[in-house]
Every structure is written in structure tokens, then in C-alpha cells.
Design a protein around this nucleic acid. Structure first.
Length: 222
DNA sequence: CATTGATCATAA
DNA sequence: TTATGATCAATG
């Protein structure tokens, strides 16, 4: 079951995903000889990284899709027992100084969203972490309507950030995309721009997809 | 109880 | 330091 060589086709990727279906985190960790941390805060992202390895992702930490040859991004999607998406989904770090030089179509954000393999997780809070199971995978691309709304959100954020109005953005802005802190801690800072183009120190930010948006994907595909 | 803001781990 | 992988936990 352990597979970690590169994938060269989407069919192969789907086949591997199918093999993982119904496996518990404990089973997967055991076969890879990995210890799952007991401390909940110390296992954030653990499963995502493990699945990347197993499925043969090669994106590294570049702002590019996980499966660079296939243009496919891998994301885990935790669901409650009622099939509801539990969390928003991190998309990508935001280059605050240069975001406005991108267009949506060429943005890091869209490059990651144009094709996503969502690996659903049966992650109800009542299930102890190690007994949570991998669920069905969804190979998704934005519909025309999805694309339009994503682009609209993105363009608004690019405008606000590019014109130094970052301080006016909080997690409530955006229909399906959000801009939220993405940092080690609340005092880690990076540079952004103010309204007259000067550098100002601010929190690093990332784009996230709202749970209601990913919920619509689950509802349409499962 | 859903949402926003904060935080943890790791690699190059 | 800047990215990746996210989920935790305080807040409204």
C-alpha cells in the first residue's frame, strides 16, 4: 500500500487515492512507521503532508500545484459525521508587495485552484484522531460560476492590497475567498504597502476558501 | 456554534 | 525568511 514514487497521470493519481479510501490514520502511520503526535496542536497538517508523500506530490514549498506535471493541487477536506465541511481551506500565501502585478488567471491562487484533488476525511470530533478515515477523493475544477466569483474576490483583494488598504481587510471580506493571517504567531511581521506606497510592517496573510464554498463542492460531487 | 484570528510543524 | 501542510481556540 505504500506508494511514494512520482505519479505521471491523473488516472494513476485517482487509483492511488482509491487505495487510501477507508484507511484510518493509524493504519497509514503504522505502515509508514510514523508516530502521530498526541498533542492536537502538534499534528496540524500532519495528514496532509503524509498524503503528499504517499501520493507522490513533488511541489515542495513552491507556490505551485503539488503535482507539478499534472497541474493538480492536493487538499484534505475534513468532514463531520453529517457530511459538513469542518474548516476553511488554506490556498496560498499572499505576496503582499507584488500581488497587484499578477492577474487572476496567472496568480498563484488560481494556479492552485484550477484543478484540485480533494481527499475527504471522516473527521467528526467524536472520532479519536488516529481512527479517522480517508474518504472518497474528488477531482474538481471550478465551474464557470465558481471561476467568476473566485476571480471577483481575488481582484478585489488585489486592488485593496495593491492600494495599501490591507488594514481594511479582515476575514469577513469575500464571497468565497478570504484573506486571513498566516503566520507563526501574532507578532511575526512582513512588509506590505501603505496608501502612498511606503513599506509597512504587517502580518503575513494567506488566501483561504470559505467552508461554505468547499461545502458546495462536496454537495455537488458526493 | 460558526467564523475570524492565532498558531504548530517542517523544508530549503 | 518564505513557503508548504492545516487546525486550534477565542470571539461574537
Amino acid at each position: 500500500m505504500i506508494i511514494n514514487n512520482p505519479v505521471t497521470s491523473i488516472d494513476e493519481l485517482l487509483t492511488r487515492s482509491k487505495i487510501l479510501e477507508n484507511k484510518t490514520f493509524a493504519e497509514i502511520a503504522a505502515q509508514l512507521n510514523l508516530i502521530i503526535p498526541d498533542d492536537p496542536t502538534k499534528r496540524k497538517g500532519f495528514v496532509g503532508k503524509v498524503l503528499e508523500q504517499i501520493l507522490g506530490a513533488d511541489g515542495g514549498n513552491l507556490p505551485a500545484p503539488d503535482f507539478s506535471q499534472l497541474g493538480v493541487e492536493l487538499k484534505t477536506l475534513p468532514l463531520s459525521s453529517t457530511g459538513k465541511v469542518k474548516e476553511s481551506t488554506f490556498v496560498t500565501h499572499i505576496p503582499l508587495l507584488t500581488l497587484h502585478t499578477q492577474s487572476f488567471e496567472t496568480s498563484d491562487c488560481y494556479l492552485k485552484l484550477k484543478q484540485v484533488l480533494w481527499i475527504t476525511i471522516d473527521a467528526d470530533v467524536k472520532i479519536p484522531f488516529v481512527y479517522r478515515r480517508i474518504g472518497p477523493a474528488i477531482l474538481w475544477s471550478p465551474s464557470a460560476a465558481d471561476f467568476a466569483i473566485l476571480k471577483q474576490d481575488w481582484q478585489w483583494f488585489a486592488y485593496m492590497i495593491g492600494t495599501g488598504k490591507l488594514a481594511e481587510i479582515d476575514g469577513s471580506v469575500g464571497e468565497c475567498l478570504q484573506v486571513r493571517p498566516k503566520a507563526r504567531y501574532a507578532k511575526s511581521l512582513c512588509y506590505g504597502l501603505d496608501e502612498i506606497g511606503n513599506f509597512v510592517l504587517t502580518l503575513p496573510r494567506g488566501f483561504y476558501l470559505r467552508a461554505k464554498f468547499t461545502q458546495s463542492i462536496v454537495d455537488a460531487y458526493l
